[in-house]
Computed example of a mutant assay.
Amino acid sequence: MTSSVLPPTDAFGQHHAALGCNARIVSLVPSITELLCDLGLTDQLVGRTGFCIHPREALRRVPKVGGTKDVKLDRIRDLAPTHVIVNVDENPRPVAEALAAFVPNVVVTHPGVPEDNRGLYALMGHLFDCWPAAEALTAALDAALVEARAVGASLPAESVLYLIWREPWMTVSRETYIAATLATVGWHTLPREAAERYPSFDWQAPWLDGVQRVLLSTEPYRFQDKHVAEVTALCGRSVQLIDGEWTSWYGSRAVAGLRALAALRRALADARA
């Protein structure tokens, strides 16, 4: 990185101190915890949430600081981090504001589309001096995006219902990272418009007539094989279980996620043919 290039900012446009190997990092975002490990920063992680589970063995020694919503502020204070990484969707704003009172750098992330991972990699590369690993991930992401878009362009577009919860039934709006990731392979979520990012619905909603396929995500609700028959009876559409990490985890997992989605889309098209 040359001196003429401005350092990257976080999702709120904030510049943060780049401390390299001197940084002490707490990650409150599971997918970014995994990203930090894949960037070679495991030894600088001093805290994580209980939902930060990948890579499992590497994280065993990293202390937990609560969940993504119920963060233990006193525990984080004791760990004396230089950087805490949060996310707009996953961590409540009051938590981030409370952290800012005693943490020098509260780094806010908010990827909206898979392409935004480029900026995420660049930000981590800048803050923690891991440019070679960040650039390698960027190259892998670009290749995965090419593959996913090729599948999306080669097959007829499908309108899908992506289920994230049961009782009440909930889905995603087109304003979410999940919807943008699905669209990369030609799966376009319904409803087209929603007042909330994660709206609830009932099975009599008129827009359901346009749904061609239902995708049951394994997270945050753990949909399983037993739910496929239930949902099929409710809507009379093709129903498919899908790994929620493929669509909702950004960071390094986005690379594998895009490739897995492309493979699944091809396989379902082949099976139909």
Rank of each mutant, 00 (worst) to 15 (best):
H188M: 10
A205K: 09
L137P: 02
Y198F: 14
W165R: 07
T176N: 12
V106P: 01
P156C: 02
A98N: 15
I178E: 04
I178A: 14
D142F: 05
T218R: 07
L163R: 03
F223K: 03
T218C: 10
D116K: 11
Q224K: 10
A153K: 12
V172H: 02
L215N: 00
L216N: 05
A179Y: 05
S200C: 05
P199H: 00
A122M: 04
A144T: 08
Y121L: 10
D209S: 13
V214S: 11
P114A: 12
E135N: 06
L141D: 09
D142Q: 15
N87Y: 11
H110S: 13
V146R: 13
V86K: 01
T181D: 13
A143H: 14
P132N: 07
L208D: 11
A150Q: 14
A101W: 00
P104T: 10
L155K: 02
T171S: 14
A150F: 07
L190H: 08
L163M: 14
E135F: 01
L120I: 09
S200R: 11
L127F: 05
V88F: 10
Y221T: 13
L120E: 09
A194P: 03
D142E: 15
D202G: 11
T218V: 03
G125Y: 02
P111V: 04
A180F: 11
V146K: 13
E115D: 14
Q224Y: 00
L141P: 07
